[in-house]
Design a protein around this nucleic acid. Structure first.
Length: 275
DNA sequence: ACCTAATCCTGCATGC
DNA sequence: TGCATGCAGGATTAGG
C-alpha cells in the first residue's frame, strides 16, 4: 500500500517527467471516485499545464496552470503510472491524462478505494486543512518534543492505531508503523502513557530513519505497489516485521507473529516487543 | 476518550 | 474444474 515513501517516490517521478507538460486530453473510463462530475473535471483539466506536484502525508496534489489542483489519494491499490504516449488502458485503468511529450499518466486502482478530486486554489488549501494532518515526519520542524506532546494528549490510546491516524504524524501506514515499532521494541498494544521516554525517543528516531531509507529505496513493494515507472520499491528487502510472520526475528530469532489490532493486521516480535 | 464494526471494492486463497 | 466464502485494508462514520 502506498504510504509516505511510496507516494513521495511517485511525486518525484512525476515532478521530473510531467512538469510543464500540457494536458491535451483526459479520458475518464470510470468516474465514480472522481470529483466534480466527469464533464466538469475534463473541462477544467484539458488544455492546462502541470506546474508542480506536492505531497502532504499520503495525499498528492498536482497543481495546474489555472491555479486549480488535482488531488490524488491512492489508498490501498492505487497507481499513477507514466506510460508511453498512446499506451492502451488496462482493465483497471480509470483515467488517462494525455500529455505533451513522451508519457501519458494512467490512474489505475483495481480495488477502487482511491479518488481524484479537482479543486480551485481557494478550495484546495481549505481541503488540505480539513484533513487535520499532523506534522510531516521528515520536516526539520517535526521535533521529538512535538511528537511527545501530541501523543501525550492520548495517554490511554494504544500506540499502533494512533500512529495510523495521521494526527500526530502524517504519512505512516501499516508497513511503516509495524517496522518502526519493531525497531523501537515497543509492543503495538502499549498504551502511550506506558511508553518510557527513552523508548518513545527511539520510536521517533526509528520513524525518521526508516522513512528516509525507504524513500532512498523507492518505497516498499510488499503488496501491490510499483512506482510511476513500474519499478520495484527495494525497501521490501529490508523489512523486519511487516509480512515476516513465521520468520525468525532479525534481532532474537524468535518467530514473528501476527495478530489483528484495531482491525488491522499487525506483525511483531513477541520477545523483543513485550507489553 | 477509546473501541468496534461497517463501508467502499476486487483479487486471491481456501475448502468442498 | 468450478463455485461459494471470506479475507485484506486507508480513512470515515456510527454507535457503544
Amino acid at each position: 500500500m502506498p504510504e509516505l515513501p511510496e507516494v513521495e517516490t511517485i511525486r518525484r517521478q512525476l515532478q521530473r517527467n510531467i512538469v510543464n507538460k500540457k494536458i491535451n486530453d483526459v479520458v475518464v473510463r470510470w468516474g465514480k471516485r472522481l470529483e466534480p462530475s466527469r464533464s466538469k473535471f475534463i473541462e477544467n483539466v484539458k488544455g492546462r499545464t502541470v506546474k508542480s506536484i506536492e505531497r502532504r502525508g499520503k495525499l498528492l496534489r498536482i497543481n495546474l496552470s489555472s491555479g486549480w489542483s488535482i488531488f490524488v489519494h491512492l489508498k490501498m491499490t492505487g497507481k499513477l503510472i507514466l506510460k508511453r504516449t498512446g499506451t492502451e488502458p488496462t482493465k483497471h485503468t480509470h483515467v488517462v491524462f494525455k500529455l505533451n511529450g513522451k508519457y501519458d499518466v494512467h490512474w489505475e486502482d483495481f480495488r477502487k478505494f482511491g479518488f481524484l478530486k479537482l479543486l480551485s486554489k481557494e478550495d484546495a488549501d481549505k481541503y488540505v486543512e480539513s484533513w487535520n494532518f499532523g506534522p510531516e515526519p521528515l520536516d526539520p520542524s517535526f521535533t521529538f518534543s512535538k511528537f511527545k506532546m501530541c501523543l501525550n494528549a492520548y495517554p490511554n490510546a494504544k500506540i499502533k492505531p494512533k500512529l495510523l491516524e495521521q494526527k500526530c504524524i502524517a504519512g505512516i501506514g501499516n508497513i511503516y508503523a509495524v517496522e518502526s515499532l519493531w525497531s523501537a521494541k515497543i509492543h503495538p498494544l502499549t498504551q502511550i502513557k506506558d511508553i518510557p521516554e527513552d523508548k518513545l525517543k527511539k520510536l521517533f528516531q526509528a520513524i525518521k530513519r526508516i522513512l528516509k531509507t525507504a524513500i532512498a529505496d523507492g518505497g516498499t513493494s510488499a503488496d501491490n505497489y510499483f512506482d510511476a515507472h513500474g519499478g520495484e520499491g527495494k525497501y521490501v528487502y529490508k523489512l523486519k516485521a511487516y509480512k515476516q510472520e513465521g520468520k525468525p526475528c532479525a534481532n532474537c530469532k524468535t518467530k514473528i507473529i501476527k495478530e489483528k489490532i484495531g482491525g488491522r493486521g499487525t506483525a511483531y516480535c513477541p520477545k523483543c516487543q513485550k507489553l
